[in-house]
Design a binder for these strands. Structure first.
Length: 773
DNA sequence: GCAGCCTACATTTTT
DNA sequence: TGTAGGCTGC
């Protein structure tokens, strides 16, 4: 047996060596899952003499796919890994769909709508149907259609479904079925698929064309699936199709039900929970040794996840050192919470010589990042925030990509609409509206109408005709170009000749400079892509090849500077699959984590708990939990109690905040005891903090004027409008009465008499308080 | 056709 | 706060 197999522990090795039928590898957090996958691929090729192209390995992210490719290359050498069918579900299926497009009425150069494109199309359709946009909100409709596709329900099926109709009627949107139908027709007409279609049509292809299915069944002799807990119904069914009628069914699913956190995108934990029922004779392997975290962290995480009903029981353990208890901090406000975290980071760095990159701050919502950002900026600590607008969602990048899309597929409606008048060329909404109306009426694409407006009853004046003609010639020129030149050359032509670069270089505002940089980055990407393809022996790199790669890429994997010396800030979702020496899970409050959106639904709460589990298990050495009793959310001061999840962790693994300064202070100020309930273990567990109530002895003076100003997802400070005589609650000084207000705008000051802190003059711009009703 | 003002709205987000 | 979309007036 080869050396590399010896490096594995017994259970990992068993999982790698078993290849006689379906297998399910339940891989606990930090248990070496990727290792098993890559070694298995290496083993199949090297020892079992599989041809690389007979192996299909599916992942959920490009990043994971890349990592596996990298490791397989290392283990077995490059020549093999190039031929493995490896990639995300979406990229592998889109490859298949391009080959078999004719079976489905598409061309092989179909383009792909991202979520924004499909929302935009839905908005147009809703308008065309003269429905009320307030009732038929495009994103709500989108979720319904997406769900239907993920459950393999076609527009016809949807229209015939009584339940769907009743459910939609109940939410006052009975016509979703009609929108769905139109949406599908429009996509077909535009030769376009959205993300969900890539799965939906693959299923339909295999279902309606058995001869095609058999071809792929024969091709994919062994199928491996990573992160199986995140598969949705459609993916599950496609895998079933590929396995259908096969003996043995050579499928190996790797995953961890405890880390299923994407149900809002259609992922269904049941797929992994029921795997053994769906594939009879499945051999189950449980990787239970955690190589990442201290025993304390592993035990704490176990005690938490134990509270979930629906799960595959396992005993995750660690043989690393025992480690310190998980620290719990309570802050009075979100600002103080950030201070506590930042101080703790400095303390740990001093004491144990950690690098900044050894720390991660994880939160439930992106909006929470702002306060931590400020705290770190103030102290000059380097940090990096993940999330926010991704590279491919930036306006300038989407604009360029839209040109590419139109060149590859002139029928692409959303791309057409995006650039017909960008940069401005005097073709306004009215003209475009007429084109769309004519196209809809005659069931043709916008491009078809553009080419022959007269044929479709559009009699534009001379000026407009000239402008339309110019646009058409521009695109036609690019199309001709693309037939001969390589993608990067066509790309630079597009950027220059379309006028985009001129538009951006008009002035040197910082925004424009960054836009320019982004476009340069895209050009670099294209050059790299082409260079690589040419190196691989291609003679002509099609623009379409670049486009289909880029359409399925998010910038998750484009961050080259991942290892620089910075503190990491990200949502818990984004942290999945990563690990850090020290992790702070912040905002541990009811309605925030678990999210208020989860309500009391047991399923949703279990997923939130899994999310918390994922957060904790990112930590190798130290883990800290913190919460704030009050925070500004969307401009409003909110008071909340600590998260119910804090009570799910066995107190033996927690260090409760007796000695935290913040804790004592808050305790003193509110007069509410933090320890109350007795736990069975003999230790006292913190009681949830109840929102402070207004003492009766302070009289109310004027009617409330609430904290004014629009709300913000960034969770930043709101402006205040206060009047003399109002009663307020300040984040630090507590209750007070406004004595005087002077100055205006940014300089407005208020003199406030605090119940416990005496008179203070506050610059309203910086003051954080709420006006009490 | 388009700049500029006003209003409504705001989890998480692998593809 | 920030953004997207709608509306208005030039």
């Amino acid at each position: 047996m080869s050396d590399y197999i010896q490096e594995l522990n017994e259970e990992q090795r068993n999982a790698v060596l078993y290849n006689d039928g379906p297998s399910l590898v339940i891989a606990g957090a930090g248990s070496g899952k990727t290792r098993v996958l890559t070694y298995k691929i290496a083993y199949l090729i090297k020892e079992k003499n599989y041809d690389a192209h007979n192996i299909l390995a599916l992942t959920f992210t490009n990043k994971a796919a890349k990592e596996i490719v990298r490791r397989v290359n290392k283990d077995i050498g490059r020549p093999w890994s190039d031929y493995i069918w490896m990639g995300t579900f979406h990229s592998v299926f889109s490859r298949i769909l391009r080959r078999e497009a004719q079976f489905l009425g598409f061309t092989s150069s179909y383009t792909i709508y991202d979520a924004a494109d499909s929302r935009s199309l839905l908005r147009t359709l809703i308008k065309e149907m003269k429905l009320d946009e307030k009732v038929y909100k495009p994103n709500v409709v989108q979720v319904h259609i997406s769900n239907a596709k993920n459950h393999l329900v076609s527009p016809e099926g949807y229209a015939n479904s009584k339940e769907a109709y009743e459910a939609d009627s109940a939410i006052k949107m009975p016509l979703i079925r009609d929108i769905y139908k139109r949406y599908k027709d429009r996509c077909c007409q535009s030769d376009v698929m959205d993300f969900d279609d890539l799965l939906f049509y693959t299923f339909m292809l295999f279902r309606d064309h058995p001869e095609v299915l058999i071809r792929y069944q024969d091709l994919f002799r062994y199928v491996l699936v990573d992160e199986y807990q995140d598969t949705n119904y459609a993916q599950h069914c496609i895998l079933l199709q590929l396995m259908q009628g096969k003996t043995p069914q050579l499928i190996c699913a790797v995953g961890d039900d405890a880390q299923s956190i994407y149900s809002f995108r259609g992922a269904d934990v049941d797929n992994i929970l029921n795997f053994t029922k769906v594939y009879p004779n499945t051999k189950v392997f449980k990787l239970e040794q955690n190589y990442r975290s201290t025993q304390t962290i592993v035990c704490a995480a176990n005690s938490l996840i134990e509270k979930n009903q629906r799960q595959i029981r396992k005993e995750v353990f660690s043989e690393k050192e025992r480690g310190e208890a998980i620290g719990v901090y309570q802050a009075y406000s979100d600002v103080e919470e950030a201070d506590i975290v930042v101080n703790k980071i400095m303390e740990l760095r001093r004491g144990q010589h950690y690098a900044y990159s050894d720390f991660a701050i994880l939160y439930r919502t992106n909006a929470q990042s702002r306060i931590f950002e400020e705290a770190m900026r103030k102290r000059g600590m380097p940090y990096r925030i993940y999330g926010g607008l991704s590279f491919y969602q930036r306006k300038e990048i989407k604009d360029v990509i839209a040109y590419f899309r139109l060149v590859v597929n002139p029928n692409d409606e959303e791309a057409f609409k995006r650039i017909i008048n960008y940069p401005a060329r005097g073709i306004g909404d009215t003209t475009v509206g007429k084109i769309i109306a004519a196209a809809t009426e005659h069931n043709v694409s916008l491009w078809t109408v553009l080419c022959e407006p007269l044929t479709y009853g559009l009699n534009f004046n001379k000026g407009i005709v000239g402008k339309l003609q110019a646009f058409r010639d521009l695109i036609a020129g690019f199309i001709a170009d693309a037939a001969e030149k390589n993608a990067n050359e066509v790309g630079t032509d597009v950027i220059r000749q379309s006028g985009i670069i001129n538009d951006i270089c008009q002035d040197n505002s910082p925004e424009n400079l960054s836009r320019k940089e982004n476009i340069e980055e895209l050009v670099n990407g294209m050059n790299d892509f082409c260079a690589q393809r040419l190196e691989e022996g291609n003679t002509h790199v099609l623009l379409g090849d670049f486009l289909s790669e880029v359409s399925l890429l998010t910038d998750q994997d484009s961050d080259k500077e991942g290892d620089d010396e910075k503190i990491t800030l990200m949502t818990v979702h984004a942290a999945k699959g990563l690990e850090f020496k020290n992790v702070f899970v912040v905002g541990m409050e009811e309605n925030l984590f678990p999210s208020g959106m989860a309500g009391e639904s047991p399923r949703a709460l279990e997923e939130e708990r899994r999310l918390f589990y994922v957060a904790i298990t990112r930590a190798e050495e130290h883990c800290f939990l913190s919460y704030a009793k009050s925070r500004l959310r969307y401009g409003k001061m909110e008071f909340s109690s600590s998260s119910r999840f804090l009570k799910d962790i066995d107190v033996r693994f927690l260090r409760l905040p007796q000695d935290a300064v913040a804790f004592r202070k808050a305790d003193r100020e509110t007069g509410s005891p933090l320890f109350g309930r007795k736990e069975s273990g003999g230790m006292r567990l913190k009681q949830p903090i109840i929102a402070p109530t207004v003492p009766r002895n302070l009289k109310r003076v004027t009617p409330a004027v609430g904290v004014s100003g629009p709300a913000s997802p960034a969770g930043s400070a709101a402006s205040h409008q206060v009047q003399q005589g109002q009663l307020i609650e300040h984040e630090r000084f507590g209750l007070g009465e406004v004595l005087k207000v002077e100055g205006e705008g940014d300089n407005a000051k208020a003199t406030i008499r605090f119940k416990n802190a005496g008179d203070k003059q506050l610059l309203l711009r910086f003051a954080r308080f709420k006006v009490i009703d």
